[in-house]
Simulated assay, not measured.
Amino acid sequence: MDERSVAEDLFDIRALAAFVSVEIDDNHAEHWLMSDGHWTIRLDLHDGTLLAGPILVEHRVTGLESAKSKLEALRQFVVLAQRRNLPASMMPRERRAAQWIAELRVGDAILDGAGHQDIARALFGSSIAERRWRIENSSYRLRVQRLARVAREYLRQPLSGPWFL
């Protein structure tokens, strides 16, 4: 390898200083966390240190079942190290966001005095039967009941829960 190739392969944590925090455990192993609040990449050093300057990174993948998520994390790390930011296309989506939005909407509806049928119509529109909605749309009724139960619990505990992170 020529000198330029070696330099391009090195990683310097100082380039990402705005995104990093580190914990050094009792065994002197370093545990790095890189995050901007929307994404997080964790890097555990088994040997050596990132504190001494640029290093050549080696990545271990153990286990076939868990390799997929580890390889995705490695891909994110490489892009972050090269670009100094993580493009939106690589940021993980919050899997529960749609549920939290529904819970928030139901909480707002409860505060406005809406009943379960009103909430069901607001959430599911024309899927709700005009008459006998409790019988014709029992799955929607049960879903609204679950959402209302969770929303009421959040409303009992102001400034807590996923709405106020």
Rank of each mutant, 00 (worst) to 15 (best):
E3W: 07
E3F: 09
E3C: 01
A7E: 15
E8F: 12
I13K: 02
A17G: 09
E23R: 14
I24D: 01
I24L: 04
N27H: 11
N27G: 00
N27L: 11
H28E: 12
H31G: 02
L33W: 04
H38K: 14
W39M: 04
I41Q: 05
R42C: 08
R42P: 01
R42E: 09
L43H: 02
D44L: 01
H46K: 13
D47A: 04
L50C: 10
L50E: 03
L51D: 11
G53Y: 06
L56W: 10
R60H: 12
R60A: 10
V61R: 08
E72Q: 15
A73Q: 04
Q76K: 15
Q76W: 01
F77T: 02
V79M: 08
R83H: 09
R83V: 02
R83M: 13
R84S: 05
P87Y: 10
S89V: 15
M90Y: 06
M90G: 01
M91I: 15
R93H: 10
A97G: 00
I101D: 13
V106H: 05
D108P: 00
I110D: 02
L111Q: 12
D112N: 15
G113H: 07
Q117C: 09
D118C: 04
I119W: 06
A120G: 05
A122E: 14
L123A: 03
L123F: 10
F124M: 10
S127L: 14
A129F: 11
A129S: 15
A129R: 11
E130G: 00
R132M: 09
R132C: 06
R132H: 14
I135R: 03
N137I: 06
R143H: 08
R143I: 00
V144R: 09
R146F: 00
R146H: 09
L147S: 05
V150T: 14
A151Q: 05
A151N: 03
E153V: 00
G161E: 05
